[in-house]
Each structure stands twice: as C-alpha cells, then as structure tokens.
C-alpha cells in the first residue's frame, strides 16, 4: 500500500521538498523586500545598486512616513481613514446582511423571493462597471470626497456576498428551534439573536473578513471618489507617495507605507485563516 500511495504522488520525496522550498522562497521574497527595505536607513534605502541585507536597523523610513514633512494631509490621518472606512463598512455589512438574510430566510413577505434574487443578481455586475453613474449619484447627494460615502459604497458591494454566504447557515437551521424560542416567549428579533446568530457565526466572521480585506485594499473607487488628500485611504495614499514630493520619489518611505498596508492583512489572515479560507470555498463553490 505504501508503494502504491507513493506512486500516486506526482514527484518523489526529495524533489518535492526542493521544489516546494524554492517556490516558498520565491513567494516570500517580495515580503522580504518590503520588510528589509522599510527597516533600512533612509540613505541605504536609496542606494543603487541596493544592498541585499539591511546594514543597520532603522525606524527612519517610518519616521519620514509618519512625520509628514511635506505638509498637507499626513499618512497617519490616511491610516485612520482606512481604519474608519474598513471597520465601519465591515460592521455595517455584518449587521445589514444578517438582518436581510434573516428576513429573506425566515420572515417571508410578498415579493421577498424576487428581492432576494435581485440582490444576488448584483453579483453579476462588478462596481468597476458602474463607477461613472455611481460617481454622479454620490456627487448629487454630496457624498463624493466623503468617508461616509466611501463606507456606504463598500458596504453596498459587499452586502450580496454576505447575504449569499450566510444564507446557507440560516436555511440549514431547522425552523422548529426558532419556533421553540418563539413559543418560549422570545420576540422575533430576540429569537434571531439568541438562536440563529450562533449558528451563523462562521458566516458572519467570513463576511467580516472579506469585507474588511476588500475595503482595506480597495483602490479604484477610492481613487475616483476621494479628491482631497485628507480623505485618502492607504492604497491611494501610496499613490501619493509614489508620485513623490518635489519630484524625488522616496522609495524607503513608500515601502514603509506598503508595509503598514500589508501587515494588518497578514496578521488577521494568520489569526483567522480558518474562517477566511472556509468562506472563500463556500462562496466560490456553492
């Protein structure tokens, strides 16, 4: 049996280790670049050709990034904007998609099925395709260049996925459990919080992760809808860094900015990998 199983493996053991180690090195190399570049001293970060290893450890690039030498809106404020918009959109998406999902699954009303399918149909059209009229709508209601506007846009475009993800866990719950809670004197909303929400928790966490990552990393809409540097989120802030101040591009500070943008995502992924991966598989396959 062992010989059969080993024959099912596409490559022999030693080769497998060599291939995977080299590939892992290749995949991790860009992470090494951003890390080493951002902890070099600003002078070393500008060296040509670049040094392979940082000669000394320095917070210099981060200091330059955060001290805002060039006036105008600083990176700290833009980091704050990103946190505000991403966390806000995440919370709003969770609350609204849980409520909507509960309504669609448990509190049927006339036309609810039609509305449910209309909601899912929005999957078919990504927001890049509607950005021009979306800009006009936001412009009309005074929400361009407004963090609340960006938060609402991100919420809107993550809602269908959240509803879709949680639909399965809500539908899988036997209605008798909910009914028992109702008979025991729970109100409908309390029944939802006490009985349905615990079942939906994995879906809620996956939805939260997806919304957070999507909002944190989103570039296109933020680039278009935010026109004032003090309203930029991190990806657009990187764009400002890359266009340089007074014609010189500070690559050390830019890579420090990239590091600040990447680190929260990696941290969250490492902590909550199970939910992220699970949600991705559910979302794609069901």
């Amino acid at each position: 049996m062992t010989s059969l199983q080993s024959s099912l493996r596409p490559v022999p053991r030693a080769a497998w280790w060599i291939i995977n180690t080299s590939l892992a090195a290749l995949v991790l190399y860009p992470f090494w670049v951003v890390l080493s570049q951002s902890i070099k001293s600003p002078a070393e970060a500008a060296a040509a050709p670049p040094t392979l290893f940082p000669g000394s450890f320095s917070w210099g690039n981060f200091a330059k990034l955060f001290t805002n030498e060039n006036g105008g809106a600083g990176f700290i404020q833009q980091l704050g904007n990103s946190v505000l918009v991403s966390v806000g959109a995440t919370l709003l998406t969770i609350v609204l998609s849980t409520l909507a999902c509960y309504g669609f699954a448990r509190l049927r009303f006339r036309g609810s099925n039609l509305l449910f399918f209309a909601t899912l149909a929005t999957f078919m059209i990504p927001f890049q395709a509607v950005i021009t009229p979306l800009y006009l709508v936001l412009h009309q209601i005074g929400l361009t260049n407004n963090l609340l506007g960006l938060m609402l846009v991100y919420t809107t475009f993550n809602l269908p996925f959240g509803i879709f993800l949680m639909r399965n866990s809500f539908a899988a719950l036997p209605s008798s459990i909910e009914e028992a809670a109702l008979v025991d004197g729970c109100g409908v909303l309390r029944a939802m919080v006490r009985v349905l929400l615990p079942v939906a928790i994995p879906g809620v966490i996956s939805t939260a992760l997806f919304t957070f990552f999507a909002s944190w990393n989103e570039f296109f809409a933020a680039l278009i809808l935010m026109t004032d540097q003090s309203k930029y989120t991190l990806p657009v802030a990187l764009n400002v860094l890359s266009s340089g101040t007074f014609g010189t591009l500070d690559w050390g500070a830019l890579q420090a900015g990239v590091a600040v943008t990447i680190v929260p995502c990696i941290g969250i992924y490492v902590l909550l990998q199970k939910y992220y991966v699970g949600g991705m598989l559910t979302g794609a396959m069901k």
Partner: peptide
C-alpha cells in the same frame, strides 16, 4: 412577521437601490 421581514430587509435594499440599481439605470440613460 412579514412586516418585520420587510423591515429587516429594507436597509440592505435601500443601499443596493441607491448605490447599485439606480446607478445601473442611470448609466443606461447617461
């Protein structure tokens, strides 16, 4: 129950209408 259903669904639907369905219709007109 069905009134509550319409109520809990409406915040999501309002957002989708304003920031998605309306833009799609507006896009065709524009």
């Amino acid at each position: 129950r069905s009134r509550l259903g319409a109520m809990v669904v409406s915040p999501a639907l309002i957002l989708l209408t304003v920031f998605f369905f309306l833009p799609v219709v507006l896009m065709l007109w524009m």
